[in-house]
């Protein structure tokens, strides 16, 4: 296995940890944390797409011409993507937390195995 694969594998491991949290944990808050971990795993994965050894931040300054910029900078597209993904993740998490508060109010517990009025 080439050495460059290691970071990608680690993001996959992170994804699996998140999925484990969602599937196994019984506490609503822990499930939400699981979802957040999966989101971070995908953010890490995307940011790795733009990585290059010794690259600079993709910000153009006045003392830099286009050629050196293109030559040196890391890929800015994944960074734009994860910024969007973070915003979307923020919306999802806010909604999840709001629902968790409401659920706690209705059921008086965070335990998912006791929140079971719907069958199947």
């Amino acid at each position: 296995m080439p050495k460059e694969m290691l970071p990608y594998l680690l993001t996959m491991v992170l994804l699996m940890i998140g999925v484990y949290g969602i599937v196994v944990k019984r506490n609503i808050i822990k499930i939400i944390v699981g979802v957040i971990i999966t989101e971070y795993a995908v953010n890490c994965f995307l940011i790795l797409q733009g990585y290059r050894d010794g690259g600079i931040a993709p910000i153009m300054t006045a003392d830099m011409n286009t050629a050196t910029f293109v030559d040196k900078s890391v890929d800015p597209v994944p960074q734009a993507l994860i910024l969007t993904a973070i915003v979307i993740g923020l919306g999802t998490v806010a909604l999840m937390v709001a629902l968790a508060i409401r659920l706690y109010e209705k059921y008086g517990t965070f335990d998912i195995s006791e929140i079971r009025r719907l069958q199947g």
Partner: peptide, 15 residues
Amino acid sequence: EASFKYLILGGLAST
């Protein structure tokens, strides 16, 4: 409860 279930699985799907 239904929305929470949907939200968790939907979030996972988006990931």
